[in-house]
Simulated scan of single mutants.
Amino acid sequence: MAGELNGRAGACDGLTIGQAASLSGVSVRTLHHWDAIGLVRPGERTPSGYRLYSSVDIARIHRVLIYRELGLPLAHISGLLDAAVLDATTSLREQRAQLLERIERLQGMVDAVDRMVEATTRGILLSAEEQAAIFGGTWDPSWAAGARERWGHTPQWTQYAEHAAARSAEDWQHIAHAVSVLHEDLAAAKRAGVGPGSEEANALAERHRASIAAYFHCTHAMHVCLGRTYVDDPGFTAYYDTMEPGLARWLSEIIDANARSHGVDPLTASWT
């Protein structure tokens, strides 16, 4: 549009406001506004007193459109149009610097979106080697794919992906360490005969629920549902029972007892 406008301006002296609007690609209302604020005022008139846009006026509209594409406010554009060449150049250089900063911010946003897309697909943005180094030899990288297959349609998976997209290998290392310590404490409590519903067991259940919150918001009812999978899913059962025989069932029991203490009936607890 800009090239067409520039090329035809010299041949279009004496344009009505409708013709000028059609040529420039802006509305008549816009040209009326620019006239009212002194940004572009048609410099010619018909014998009847109607204003006409000369080739100089059309060229000024062309410059306004360019500056507007740069994101400049109309008040700033007016100053540029009427400024000395040196002042206008300085202002444009400042605007260029601001545009580069904006590009950098937008690129950062694009990168964040890319990580979010990848995290939604992969879960953990670490290589299989990095995952093994952080989570230990018993960790299976395919678990993330299995989790996505099972829960990828849920809001919790979206929350998980949002967290994963923002985490570095160091962040995951801190999380893995905290979980490892929790598992040791759970196994030790099970061996010591800590009973479900006791103060110590409830505290451990809350710590376990908090560890889930590192991935997504976990209510007490949702925690109960997770506890069921530790008993019903052979993979989960084996994962916990390798730490301490019977740990999966005991963990499910202390989760249920803790939920009761918070007013949730494990028998009717649901994910939603």
Score class of each variant (00 low, 15 high):
residue 2 A to H: 13
residue 2 A to M: 15
residue 3 G to F: 15
residue 3 G to L: 15
residue 6 N to H: 14
residue 7 G to R: 14
residue 10 G to T: 08
residue 14 G to K: 07
residue 15 L to E: 00
residue 19 Q to F: 05
residue 22 S to A: 13
residue 26 V to S: 01
residue 29 R to C: 07
residue 35 D to V: 01
residue 46 T to H: 00
residue 47 P to H: 00
residue 55 S to D: 09
residue 56 V to C: 14
residue 57 D to I: 02
residue 57 D to M: 03
residue 59 A to K: 09
residue 59 A to T: 12
residue 59 A to W: 05
residue 61 I to H: 00
residue 61 I to A: 02
residue 65 L to M: 09
residue 66 I to H: 07
residue 68 R to K: 15
residue 73 P to L: 04
residue 74 L to W: 05
residue 76 H to K: 10
residue 81 L to A: 04
residue 81 L to I: 10
residue 87 D to F: 02
residue 89 T to A: 15
residue 94 E to R: 12
residue 97 A to C: 13
residue 98 Q to L: 13
residue 98 Q to M: 13
residue 101 E to A: 12
residue 106 L to S: 00
residue 109 M to S: 02
residue 109 M to E: 04
residue 110 V to N: 00
residue 111 D to L: 03
residue 114 D to H: 08
residue 118 E to S: 15
residue 119 A to Q: 04
residue 124 I to S: 14
residue 124 I to T: 12
residue 128 A to N: 11
residue 130 E to N: 05
residue 130 E to R: 10
residue 134 I to G: 06
residue 135 F to Y: 12
residue 135 F to N: 00
residue 147 A to D: 04
residue 154 T to S: 12
residue 165 A to V: 04
residue 166 A to I: 08
residue 170 E to G: 13
residue 172 W to V: 08
residue 178 A to R: 15
residue 180 S to H: 10
residue 182 L to Q: 06
residue 187 A to H: 01
residue 191 R to V: 04
residue 192 A to I: 02
residue 205 A to Q: 04
residue 205 A to E: 02
residue 207 R to T: 01
residue 216 F to M: 13
residue 240 Y to N: 00
residue 241 D to Y: 09
residue 242 T to Y: 14
residue 243 M to I: 10
residue 246 G to M: 08
residue 248 A to E: 06
residue 255 I to V: 12
residue 261 S to W: 10
residue 261 S to G: 11
residue 263 G to L: 02
residue 265 D to T: 04
residue 266 P to E: 07
residue 266 P to Q: 07
residue 271 W to H: 04
